[in-house]
Design a binder for these strands. Structure first.
Lengths: 126, 126
DNA sequence: TTTATGCTTCAATTGCAATTGAATTATCAG
DNA sequence: CTGATAATTCAATTGCAATTGAAGCATAAA
């Protein structure tokens, strides 16, 4: 369910932190609609260029997006959603948050003891 | 796809922020395995009681978990995963991160223009 | 009513993250 | 080479969040 080693937990946390910021969530949602450059998102979201660069880097470090230069005019840089990452985390969340995986168990406190006792009573021949 | 109004975005962000912290992620994962009290998680995760209370509150404010008192000894408090919330966010992530929703579109920069030109060439009778 | 227990709240520290303006890099056009 | 453009990096500010120890609260037992 939850990754065991620290490395994977950090990776997971980085992804969650990346999406846990309103502006980055908006940026990512925009990129899901198609590749985009800094200047385009600047207009759509009304954020400063350097601030966008900052958020891009965090999304990129989290592995959620990647970038490439325009093949005609190298001054333009396009950001895209990383399909493999989207697939991976889509599947992970689908598993992790699955309500069917919520388990029942006897609580550790006094109430749990009572229930155990009740079960003994219930299991007695009537 | 992405919630429109600020209120919903804040709600979404609160949920993501709540899970974006390693300790809270561990706590939530533990609660998915069954209801638990402060003292039990203290042993399992090795966190201070007050720190656990702090994280509980954040998870609770995000609507991800809820709490109840032990019916035998009211000093004990149990925390549980909120089934409705789990279901809701499970479905939301399932939709939002669906790789099939990643769209293609012509980029806004020079490369996009070139591709348009190429498309003109490709559409010419040979 | 006093004492103990499970948990929470408070106060203070620490570190990190979002934002902004200025300076810098990379690329292209003349 | 010079100037212009798209974007990034740097420096500084601001605010918030995780953590810790001490104090407080609610409940139960003696």
């Amino acid at each position: 369910m939850l990754p065991e080693n620290e490395t994977e937990i950090k990776e997971l946390t980085a992804v969650l932190k990346a999406l846990a910021e309103p502006n980055r969530m908006r940026i990512f949602a925009e990129l899901m609609q198609g590749d985009s450059c800094n200047c385009e998102l600047q207009e759509r979201l009304g954020l400063a260029r350097n601030l966008l660069s900052h958020h891009f880097r965090i999304l990129e470090n989290a592995g959620l997006v990647h970038s490439r230069r325009d093949q005609v005019d190298g001054r333009w840089i396009y950001y895209s959603v990383d399909r493999a990452a989207a697939t991976r985390w889509h599947d992970w969340f689908n598993h992790f948050l699955d309500p069917a995986h919520i388990q029942e168990r006897t609580v550790c406190g006094p109430e749990g003891q009572l229930i155990s006792t009740e079960q003994v009573f219930l299991s007695l021949p009537s």
